[in-house]
Design a protein around this nucleic acid. Sequence first.
DNA 1: CCTCTTTGCGATCGACGATCGCAAATAAGG
DNA 2: CCTTATTTGCGATCGTCGATCGCAAAGAGG
Lengths: 229, 229
Amino acid sequence: MPRESIWLRPVPTSGIGRPAEWSREQITASAIAVADADGLAAVTMRRVATELGTGAASLYRHLATRGDLLDLMIDHAFGEYEPAPDTGDWRADLVADHLQRLRYLRSRPWLLDAVLDRPPLGPNVVRLVERTLARLATHPASGSAKMETIGVLTGMVQTYAQNERPGTGVLDEDFIAAQAAILMCAVDDGTHPHLAAALSGPGSGTGESADDRLARILRLVLDGLLPEP
Amino acid sequence: MPRESIWLRPVPTSGIGRPAEWSREQITASAIAVADADGLAAVTMRRVATELGTGAASLYRHLATRGDLLDLMIDHAFGEYEPAPDTGDWRADLVADHLQRLRYLRSRPWLLDAVLDRPPLGPNVVRLVERTLARLATHPASGSAKMETIGVLTGMVQTYAQNERPGTGVLDEDFIAAQAAILMCAVDDGTHPHLAAALSGPGSGTGESADDRLARILRLVLDGLLPEP
DNA sequence: CCTCTTTGCGATCGACGATCGCAAATAAGG
DNA sequence: CCTTATTTGCGATCGTCGATCGCAAAGAGG
């Protein structure tokens, strides 16, 4: 049974009975305020309700589950995302836009946490897909090829953001340092010769920034998925 | 502060004092049995302990947190993963191996849940990276380029598995059907012309299997990341 | 004013991760 | 063999979580 999306259960605007004191938008805003301040884990029904000056049970008049709240937060956040400007060079624009998304995810760590366990498909996400398709309008590839490309690029940005995340990401310096024992053991004891070579080879210590690195990878992947016509 | 990896806190083999009745391996096996039967959410300290015939508090003599248990489960699962055989064609082998990983993730839904919130870096994961690097040994690309490629392919397989997951994946048929209202609204009302074109264009309804689809995408991405020398 | 419908929300339930403190079990020293 | 040091087993418990229930409160229609 698929999860029942909140987008299919529109707010009941009966007009009859006691009028609601809060809207989904207000609840969403409070939840995002909590997440911005203390991370997604701090977004509990109690905390959001307190922020709103009410009790936790009240929220369930507007949301069926906490997951609904996360869906609303995610879509609201993507609604505030400002895509990179359109310059006419679709390849450069796509790369620039996805770099912008990486920075957006960095600035809102809770958003990455949220999308990682709730693949988003709200109206604002659909709008972003439409926007990206518009940039590719003149490309001769099929619609499904373009959709696949969008899915791959989106996924790559999220994966990259997760892997560079301080504290848990496998690309995080401190994390790597903390794992030096096992990695170096693996490298030093000679049982992983290729890994040792890859980690000590050229390009491992270059000064390339995380952004430049992702941009380069995105360009390479785009070369494969949507070759220049 | 980076998370304290369990791999850096090896089991204390003091020899002195009361001997332990269970090992990390036994606990891990019980946890995996629970996850196989009822999913990752069912892997609670109480449930695993019950499966082991003991109390929940006992587990904390062997693990610091539930996260440690997940790390052990993940690495154990990757330890049982059998890579696709080596045929000498590195490109085809890489694609075949990652298809195999997709099937592996499908057969163990809890493993996907686990890796999505705990980027794995245990010994068996390192071993798989080494194995993949070995397949690329003769390729002239730099070590860091190969590492990036591995990261991208691994991430793509996970993302693909998540997106095709029944119930929550955006590629799942039932999920799409349940979201028909919003998607179709978006398509029909003329505000998303490119999306409408992409969804109705050629290639949308082809009989290509999910496996074939991922294989084709992986090949295209590989063309970009590791061009034929 | 009375009724009907809807919302607000304190009280509460069951389950969770984690901790504490003591009993039990073993190895070393004499 | 007994004592002491050290480690493990684990029942009891704490604080927090998502979610539910039942009733009071607040409008709208007659």
